[in-house]
Amino acid sequence: MAYQTFDLSVKDHIAHLQLKRPAELNTMTPAFWSEIKAIFETLEQDPEVRVAVLSSTGKHFTAGMDLSVFASLAPTIADEARKREELRRKILKLQDCFSIIERMRFPVLVAIQGGCIGGGVDLVTACDARYMTRDGFIQIAEINIGMTADVGTLQRLPRLIPEGVVRELAYTGRRLGAERALALGLVNEVFEDHAALLAGVFKVAAEIAGHSPLAVAGTKEMLNFTRDHSVADGLNYIATWNAGMLMGNDMPEALAARMQKRAPDYEALPPATKSLL
């Protein structure tokens, strides 16, 4: 299927989503929002996918929300209370376009070149790991246009870097450059240029894709759960998870592959259930 804002490919268990509007700085148009959710819903049904890489094209990763989206958010209902309720639901739908990334059973790695601005920060903070070019930066730019960021940055970024740094960035609209982002732990690695960035991220993705997809899915589930719960709750959940998942075929296959000095051959996960029937 052809998309307006993305190129999509799947090879060697790695899905590659690439923003493809460099001349427009990869702004997030209305099509972007519908397409990113549809793409992840499609990938969730593909048993071949074990990891995804999200990248972009051109000078900047993304300049953030396209102005046309703000126009489309304008409520059309006359009653003031119902107008506000409609707008709230629209914002929640935008949030879910990025929250779906967290719900994927596979990790999503993001390669950031140049600027990652506004809604781009909402997007990359929902991913499992971030990588950046040396000229890269993030910017919580919403404050510069008189609004509060509302699609995930203010909820996720304080769990990734110190809260005081987040507050400074959010209150001032300043840029956070690649080297400081690396020092703070926001990005895993900084690369000299875009080509090196993609090569490095795909190397990580290939390593992940070589592991048991069930074990990777369980690891992501546990990390997300533990982030939002107590240590005791997390320990209880992993005990229950492994009581159900540990006795499958993957651990014997991993041990056999190691003894036989070959790559393990893991069974794909079944497609995610879309309906009760």
Rank of each mutant, 00 (worst) to 15 (best):
A81Q: 14
A81K: 14
R82S: 15
E85H: 12
E86R: 13
L87T: 14
L87W: 11
L87Q: 15
I91C: 10
L92H: 14
L92A: 14
K93Y: 09
C97A: 12
C97L: 10
S99K: 15
I100M: 04
I100H: 05
I101S: 04
E102N: 13
R103G: 11
R103V: 07
R105N: 15
P107G: 13
P107M: 10
I112M: 10
Q113V: 00
I117M: 08
V121P: 02
D122R: 02
T125L: 04
D128F: 01
A129E: 15
R130G: 05
R130L: 12
R130C: 10
Y131F: 08
R134I: 03
G136S: 09
F137H: 08
F137V: 02
I140W: 01
I143Y: 03
I145D: 14
G146Q: 11
M147T: 08
D150S: 12
G152E: 08
L154Q: 09
L154D: 10
R156Q: 15
R156C: 12
I161Y: 06
V165M: 09
V165T: 15
V166M: 05
V166Q: 10
E168K: 09
A170T: 11
G173C: 01
G173T: 00
R174Y: 12
R175Q: 15
L176N: 14
G177E: 15
A178M: 00
A178W: 06
A181R: 05
A181V: 02
A183P: 00
L184F: 00
L184D: 04
V187W: 02
V187F: 02
N188C: 11
N188T: 10
N188D: 11
F191G: 12
E192M: 10
D193G: 07
L197H: 09
L197C: 08
L198Y: 01
V204F: 05
V204W: 05
A206D: 11
E207M: 01
P213I: 03
L214G: 07
G218C: 10
G218E: 13
T219Y: 07
M222H: 09
M222A: 04
L223N: 05
N224W: 08
T226L: 02
